[in-house]
Nucleic acid binder design. Sequence first.
DNA 1: TCGCGGAGTATTGTCGACAATATTGTCGAT
DNA 2: ATCGACAATATTGTCGACAATACTCCGCGA
Lengths: 208, 208
Amino acid sequence: MAADTRVLEDLRAAILRGEFAPRQRLVEAELCEQFDASRFSVRAALQALEADGLVERQRNVGARIREIGIEEAVEISEVRQVVEGLIARRAAERANDAEAEGLAAIGREMHAAVAAGEVAEYSDLNARLHASLREIARHEKANDIIARLHGQMVRHQFALSRQPGRSKVSVWQHQAIIDAVVARDGDAAEAAMRAHIASVIEALRAIR
Amino acid sequence: MAADTRVLEDLRAAILRGEFAPRQRLVEAELCEQFDASRFSVRAALQALEADGLVERQRNVGARIREIGIEEAVEISEVRQVVEGLIARRAAERANDAEAEGLAAIGREMHAAVAAGEVAEYSDLNARLHASLREIARHEKANDIIARLHGQMVRHQFALSRQPGRSKVSVWQHQAIIDAVVARDGDAAEAAMRAHIASVIEALRAIR
DNA sequence: TCGCGGAGTATTGTCGACAATATTGTCGAT
DNA sequence: ATCGACAATATTGTCGACAATACTCCGCGA
């Protein structure tokens, strides 16, 4: 069964988990051993990951983990800003009552996590909120793009969540998004999401 | 040199030129003959094109040209709407005088083409206008995404340009975008681009 | 006539071996 | 000591052969 699929998923997960450093070389033979697979499978996985933008390859030289600098992270976030804006708008337009209540619940948990100073918990809730919005929006193309961009951002996302005091700011931005969706106000939802990601971009620029 | 790269480019160009029908099967052996290449190269090309969303593959069954229905074309256009909106905004923020004049010139040519009823010429200018905006905006990530989405839309784009009377409507929308960029008004540029693509979406829905 | 195996065929999946290329290391000349 | 050419090595690129799988069509029984 699907040997190359398994390698692809394992390798992608390992990269996303941060097990490889940026610009680290990915030698095919080593990966073969590490994942107990043939070069064939490894090669296919590398090609797929290149398309995902997680790996870069040079002909006759090999593959390495793509390094995503701050400037590129900002560009990615700018695209996310508008595409997640679209998602928020659609979510506001399509949410049913149960879905709206689910979002509101996440909002309450967020406030609680911030009050308790639970950083990891908050970061988790953040992911759940965005995922819920994507699910409610049911916009396949937009979701695909966000997923791809998200993969390239994991490292910086992590750095952001470690920034002290960040959650105290963003929790109100998240609340604004939730309120807009609950009120079924598409314009407001898009604007709130944009404002939220604008602040992410600012924080990103402040990191270096 | 680079056997698989050549096959990839040739095959992609052939698909974009519409030489394969939607859902048409792409048998590896046939492609080998057609492009005078080994199965190895063909397979690599198919994998890459799958990532591009141009072909779909099923394990142990094979590859076929992906069919993009109206609903999906609408979704693609909705994403384009916001991403090209971002591009238009950036273009307005960054255009220098020469670039602004270049856009204005394209606008004048467009009016002339519409007046003369030159459909093909107008469609060409349309492509040039959007390309110019992308170049001025210098937003790599946004440009990548648009390129990918554009590849999936070629068939429908063609159908749209054949719609009689469409150019008379869109020429003024294009002019609004150009005016906004020339005025260096980012908000107006984004709004104009969104309005333009909103009308594309309407036309798309009207096709069937 | 219809449904149901089952062989045969078409097509893709996987691999190991070898070729091509880039990188690294070595030696000699200046 | 430094630079260049050349050899050695590491790594990826390419291919052809075979295995595995899905599809097709035929014959058989009810």
